[in-house]
Structures are given as structure tokens and as C-alpha cells.
Design a protein around this nucleic acid. Structure first.
Length: 425
RNA sequence: GUGGCUGUAGCUCAGUUGGUUAGAGCACCUGGUUGUGGUCCAGGGGGUCGGGGGUUCGAAUCCCCUCAGCCACCCCA
């Protein structure tokens, strides 16, 4: 072949497209029933929009180019900056809370590997303009609502919830100064992913003493919120603890508690999170997180807007599909195509009637198809099977036989009656 | 961006110590079983053995480069 698809991209042949649509349809269905509205943005933006949010280093991890007018542009690696830009432009005229979702196609110039490609789709759900944990709780509920919708159980996946301010308080209480907080957070983010020995090395690299590590780990290993309140050094972070307690009450009330658990080791990678943070992991799998999110109250300011609180999450299609595949949750129907009707010539010289019947079925809303070639009934039935047809309509000069291919039962109708009402039986 | 493993028809693979026109199953197409099916039978298309270069009388088979995939790092918005 002279050309191949670009590294890290996928071709969606019909059988793959069925899976992609099944996932995206579920994303949209769940978003809408939770009261969120869909939005979208351009697939490229000014490069500065992304560097403003994530720093200049990000530039080498995305696809950027200069247009003929000399503008420095980049294909979007995430949609949150676009969302912030859009909201900032109209923030005073939008009724709050702003509950929006999107299913953008994104590109990142990273090295492809399992669960990570250079082009992918990501479901984003955000609540903007609401500072209370009710908004965080609602996002988490939407997330759980989706997991349940696609058949994933609490045994399959878990939402692990942590708190950025609590982690910062614990780090501070361990005697680490302001300048060391970010590097300490970065190290803590690694803790669930490496063994104890590697973790110690990372800590040494970040300049943490063993006493400080012990102090922080003690905090991180707490699994009961009541225990948190007993830690004297966290007195100043009482609000953060109250937020977590409140969050779990909300999530519990909405019926999503069985998927959620506290996990103070979750702090998330980048620095812009300001409150509750969470990640979704498949049980028993060493796979990367299926979804992640949290509160980011300063983002709109960063893109030049007013100070407006925000919270939300993203879920990529690549890891999700692997997880669904491994858990056997992709429906068997997706394996083959489906058709409501296949229309067959029951005798010679009536092809025009086949077209009339096919047209009537299609206008009535059925997925109907017919063969381009005139051939025997037996061959056409084989074709109908191959196309996954539920029924066939065998057309003759004076009538139509409607046959159900799974039961083999056949019903006779006059041509006139069938054309007048293809749905009747 | 760094390192390791892999690369033969659309898919899963076979191909003997380098030796004549590179194979199988499935899939696809055509025809037959003479016109109500998922079976079966026959035939067919499709590969410059990922690509390029080298060693050799001769390479899918050995060497180098490159591309792509997978895995581990980096990173993870």
C-alpha cells in the first residue's frame, strides 16, 4: 500500500463505527437525562489558549501549525480551554448553573501505546458557576449513571475520590513549605502506581524526609472520614473534610454510593485542580484511569475571564473500550450489522415492484435493502441472512410474503395492502 | 523523546540448515445444488513476504536503515 493511516490514528470501518456510536450514544443519552446540554467548539484554536492553561511545555505535546496569515494554531488536545473561553465570553448572560457536556475529537502528539492514541474521543461533563460540592456530586453521579448504563458494576469499576485541599493541608502539616507542595503532590500521585521501594526513591528525589513521608502516608491511608477529623494537624482543613462528608451524602442520596469510595491518594496530575478530585479505575486491571476529574475554580481567570467556579470530568473512548471489551460488556448485536427488511424478487420480471415495496418500507422508517442483481430466491435469502435482516419481503405480481427469518414463520399479504401499510401485519 | 519485542494474502498462521513459478484455513467474488435461507460442492481474485539498501550464483529466511504495532519509561490535560 502506498499510503497507510497515520501513527496513532484509527480507521473506523463499519464494525468499529458501530462500537464507537454505541459508546457515544450512551454518553449523550446519559448526559441529557441528567439535565446537561451539548456544546462543541472548533477543532483548532490559538496555540496560546492551551499554553495559557497548561504552560509552554504543553506545546511539544500537541499538533500545532502556522496558517497562511501567520497565526500560531493548534489542534485541540482537550476541550476544557475552549469551554472556558466560550463561557467567559457570555458568562453574564448564561443562566446558572451552566451544565454542559461535549464529545469532542481530540489529538495529542504523544507516543501511542495501549489505551493511548494520538486521536481519540473524550466525553466531557462540566458544571460551571456553582461553588458547592453539590455540583461535584452531580458530576460524579452522571459518571456513575453512565457506568451503570453500559453494564459496568461496582465490582468492575470504582470511582476513587480524593481532595486537593486536604492533600495540601497534610503536606503542609508535615512541615513542607509552599514551594515544595507541587513536587510533593506529583510524587504522591505516583504512589498507587509504583511499589514501596520505588516510592521511597521518588520521595528522596523530591527532598522529603522519611518522617514527612510517614506523616503524609498516614493521612492518605485513612479510609473513614470520621478518622480524618481526629488528626490534629488537619484542623485547619476542616472545611475540606466537611466537603467530602457532604459529597458522599449527596452521592449516596442519588444512588451512586456503591461505586464510590474515598481514596486520599488520588490527587491528579496537573496543578490546576482546587477541590474534590477523582479517578475511575477498572477493578483488578493495571490499565490507566478510565476517567478523571475534579474542581478547577481558577480556570476561567486563566483564559482572561472572571472568577467563576467550575468542576467536571473527562472520559476517553480508548481505555473505556478496552475495559468494556475485557469485562464482556459490549453487546453481541454490535458484532454484525442489522436490517429490518430484505426485499426479494419472488418471480421474474417484477423488479419494479421490488423497488416499490422497498421504497414503501424505507418511507415507513424501516431499514430496508434489496439485491442489485436478479437471482434466485435461495441466493437472495442467503444474502438476507448475511446482511442480518430480521425479515424478508418476497415480492410476487399479486402479493408479498413477509417471512421472519429467525422463526421461519411466513405471512401472506396482498400487494395493495402491503404498499398502503407496510407496518400492518 | 529513550529502550525492548514483533511485522508472510482482509484475518489467523505455515514456510524445513538461504535454493526452482510463496502455501493453508476463514473471509470475499463467481457458478452449481434449478429458483424459501444460515449446510454443501466447484472455481476465482488478492501477497514485489511492512518499505529501502546490502551480503550471496541465489533471500521471506543473514546484516543495516526506515516505517508501523505492542510493551516499559517520560507524560498524562
Amino acid at each position: 500500500m502506498k499510503f497507510q493511516s497515520v501513527k496513532g490514528t484509527r480507521d473506523f470501518y463499519p464494525e468499529m463505527m458501530r462500537v464507537r456510536n454505541w459508546i457515544a450514544d450512551a454518553w449523550r443519552r446519559v448526559s441529557l437525562r441528567n439535565g446537561f446540554e451539548e456544546y462543541d467548539a472548533p477543532i483548532f484554536e490559538y496555540l496560546d489558549l492551551f499554553t495559557a492553561k497548561s504552560g509552554p511545555e504543553i506545546a511539544e505535546q500537541l499538533f500545532s501549525f502556522t496558517d497562511r496569515g501567520g497565526r500560531n494554531l493548534a489542534i485541540r488536545p482537550e476541550i476544557t480551554p475552549s469551554l472556558a473561553r466560550m463561557v467567559a465570553a457570555k458568562v453574564n448572560s448564561l443562566p446558572r448553573p451552566i451544565k454542559w457536556f461535549s464529545v469532542p475529537r481530540l489529538c495529542r502528539a504523544e507516543r501511542p501505546q495501549r489505551g493511548r492514541l494520538r486521536e481519540f474521543f473524550q466525553w466531557n461533563v462540566d458544571v460551571i458557576g456553582e461553588p458547592s460540592v453539590l455540583a461535584d456530586a452531580e458530576c460524579i453521579f452522571v459518571l456513575v449513571d453512565f457506568l451503570r448504563e453500559v453494564g459496568l458494576t461496582p465490582d468492575d469499576v470504582q470511582v476513587r475520590i480524593g481532595s486537593r485541599p486536604l492533600a495540601v493541608a497534610a503536606i503542609t502539616a508535615a512541615g513542607i513549605g509552599e514551594t515544595g507542595i507541587d513536587s510533593a503532590l506529583a510524587v504522591l500521585d505516583k504512589r498507587p502506581k509504583v511499589d514501596d521501594g520505588q516510592f521511597e526513591k521518588l520521595c528522596e528525589g523530591a527532598g522529603l524526609s522519611s518522617q514527612q513521608i510517614e506523616c503524609i502516608c498516614e493521612f492518605q491511608d485513612v479510609e473513614d472520614l470520621a478518622e480524618l477529623k481526629k488528626i490534629p494537624s488537619l484542623e485547619k482543613a476542616a472545611d475540606g473534610i466537611d466537603d467530602l462528608v457532604q459529597l458522599f451524602e449527596y452521592v449516596e442520596a442519588m444512588g451512586a454510593g456503591d461505586y464510590c469510595r474515598i481514596d486520599l491518594r488520588v490527587v491528579r496530575g496537573l496543578a490546576y485542580y482546587t477541590g474534590i478530585v477523582y479517578e475511575v479505575f477498572g477493578e483488578g486491571e493495571s490499565l490507566r484511569a478510565v476517567a478523571g476529574g475534579g474542581r478547577y475554580d481558577r480556570l476561567l481567570e486563566v483564559v482572561g475571564g472572571p472568577k467563576v467556579p467550575a468542576t467536571g470530568f473527562g472520559m476517553g473512548d480508548v481505555v473505556l473500550e478496552i475495559l468494556l471489551e475485557e469485562k464482556g460488556r459490549l453487546p453481541a448485536e454490535l458484532r454484525s450489522r442489522a436490517l429490518d427488511f430484505f426485499v426479494i424478487d419472488g418471480e421474474d420480471g417484477i423488479f419494479e415492484t421490488v423497488l416499490r415495496v422497498s421504497g414503501a418500507l424505507r418511507r415507513a422508517g424501516f431499514e430496508a435493502d434489496f439485491s442489485y442483481k436478479r437471482q434466485g430466491v435461495g441466493k437472495q435469502l442467503k444474502t438476507a441472512n448475511r446482511l442480518g435482516a430480521a425479515k424478508v419481503a418476497i415480492v410476487r405480481a399479486d402479493g408479498v410474503s413477509v417471512k421472519d427469518l429467525s422463526s421461519g414463520k411466513q405471512v401472506e399479504r396482498t400487494l395493495e395492502a402491503f404498499l398502503a401499510d407496510p407496518r400492518g401485519l
